[in-house]
Amino acid sequence: MVRLAAALVITLAGAAAAEPQRVVSVNLCTDQLAMLIAAPGQLQSVSWLAADPSVSLMPDQARSVGLNHGSAEEVFLQDPDLILAGTYSTGPATEMLRRLGMRVETMAPATSVEDVRAAITRMGALLGQPARAAKVLADFDADLAALPKGAPRRATTYGANGYTSGPETLSGDVMRRAGLVLLTEGAGQMALEQLVMAAPELIVTGSRYPTPSRAESVLDHPALAAIPADRATVPDRDWICGLPAIVGTAERLAQ
């Protein structure tokens, strides 16, 4: 029994070490990380979201790789030897692909800069490109080390429905690395009047959609505009995924 298990482990390890040649990614964040690390020609397709400039930092590169819509049928027909997915993305589709005998690897969304570092290394291992991943990680670490420390302003994000990012989120950690002090201990909704009373020194808002919504209308409230604080806008694409590019976001927030 033990020997069988050991044999299984060795076989699995062997399969993982072999460099996959036809990789399909179905999640915006694995899409972009894979495009950074994969060797040319290794990626078969990435998700269509990666080609949407409002959420993706690499729309042109995504289009040149080729796009999928994350459906099981579409992905299966591309005959991949590795499928990259997010923990929460397209559950039924990835389940079905697993049943069909495909190798599906999921990556959890990054909630801190440390998570990003780990994700880079893991992506390198999955793609069989440890050297390329090590290069990306070394550059990332150098950029992090060179990050200027800004003034410790009391800051918070404020978005649709009054949601703020807490310390356990990637945006919270990026703000902390930029030298900012988070206004909220926990993530969650904050009523506009609580925000006014908390007297932040910097309010960070995100992207707006072209058509209006009641959820976002709180961002147009005159009371929000009247708060005597600095403003910064960080488009969602700049920190929605744990990518090395978040250093640039931290750098802008530090100023």
Partner: peptide, 25 residues
């Protein structure tokens, strides 16, 4: 049909009503 992902959640608001975060405007 709205391209704004928040809009679909707003059905509740339009059918139930709310005065939260309304301004002088």
């Amino acid at each position: 049909l709205s391209p704004n992902p928040f809009a679909a959640n707003e059905i509740v608001f339009w059918m139930m009503g709310s005065l939260a975060d309304r301004s002088w405007l």
